[in-house]
């Protein structure tokens, strides 16, 4: 038995030496992944806050609130997205993809929502990546967001636009719904022409949600349109004019 445990100890050291290398490699990977996950969660949380901030915009505070959202978004980028970028070598993006994808998608969602509020246009992947090009990864190459993450983030944008359209109507800003409707129709068309790739997980489900949102937007536009037809245009304007100002102050 003494002899036996002696043998065990000796053998142990042989095996364990090999495994110490493995342990180092695994630890390095796991720790890096853990850091990236944390950074990504921070990207998610702070991007969500930007989106909440955008939903708080109304006619009265529009200028200031938009500027605030822009500043917040820039902070997300220069603080948290940077943390992700600094962890990655160029050839590691796919290795840690699942660790940072959720954050990048939420960031895309926030950035594109903000852009739509500002200009009514889609922030393109090129524009977005250009704005990130000062973030360098470990190998000093510019950091960029992948097509997959961009598309999944833009798919979620639809849901936010639906919320904007409906609360727009709720606040008497019927023109928002109409603008959103055309925009989301175009988006949905673009998405539905994409090939069905295995690479972008969860796309079919997001497409379904996108269609549900689009239908809600269309129904909202329909309601606005039908209501608007009962009386002549100028009568509506008269009836609502001073009230609109009212609702600005309230909101």
């Amino acid at each position: 038995s003494n002899n036996n445990s002696g043998t065990v100890s000796k053998r142990e050291s042989v095996f364990c030496q090999q495994f110490q290398q493995y342990a180092q490699q695994l630890d390095a990977v796991n720790e890096k992944r853990e850091r990236i996950v944390k950074a990504s969660r921070d990207v998610t949380t702070s991007s969500k806050k930007v989106i909440f901030q955008i939903h708080r915009i109304n006619r009265a505070n529009r200028g200031a609130a938009l500027q605030q959202a822009e500043r917040d978004l820039h902070a997300v980028q220069s603080i948290h997205v940077r943390r992700v970028a600094q962890e990655l070598k160029a050839n590691e993006t796919w290795k840690y993809k699942r660790a940072f994808s959720p954050g990048m998608q939420e960031f895309v969602e926030a950035a594109t929502t903000l852009e739509f509020c500002k200009t009514g246009k889609l922030l393109t992947l090129q524009q977005l990546n250009a704005s990130l090009s000062h973030l360098k990864d470990v190998s000093d190459a510019p950091f960029s967001i992948s097509t997959g993450d961009y598309l999944l983030g833009v798919a979620d944008l639809t849901g936010e636009l639906m919320r904007l359209a409906i609360s727009g109507v709720a606040a008497g800003q019927r023109e928002v719904a109409i603008a959103v409707c055309g925009f989301v129709q175009a988006l949905y068309k673009g998405f539905s022409q994409l090939p069905n790739t295995v690479d972008i997980r969860g796309m079919p489900k997001k497409m379904d949600l996108m269609l549900q949102s689009l239908i809600k937007i269309e129904n909202t536009c329909y309601a606005v349109h039908v209501r608007g037809l009962e009386y002549p245009e100028d009568m509506i304007v008269n009836a609502l004019e001073h009230e609109e100002i009212d609702s600005d102050q309230e909101a």
Partner: peptide, 22 residues
């Protein structure tokens, strides 16, 4: 919470109906 905005929209529509008809 997301549901509240639908409630608000519906109430707003009724308010619109009432206003437009003076």
């Amino acid at each position: 919470f997301d549901g509240i905005k639908y409630d608000l929209k519906k109430v707003e529509e009724v308010l619109y109906d009432v206003k437009i008809r003076g």
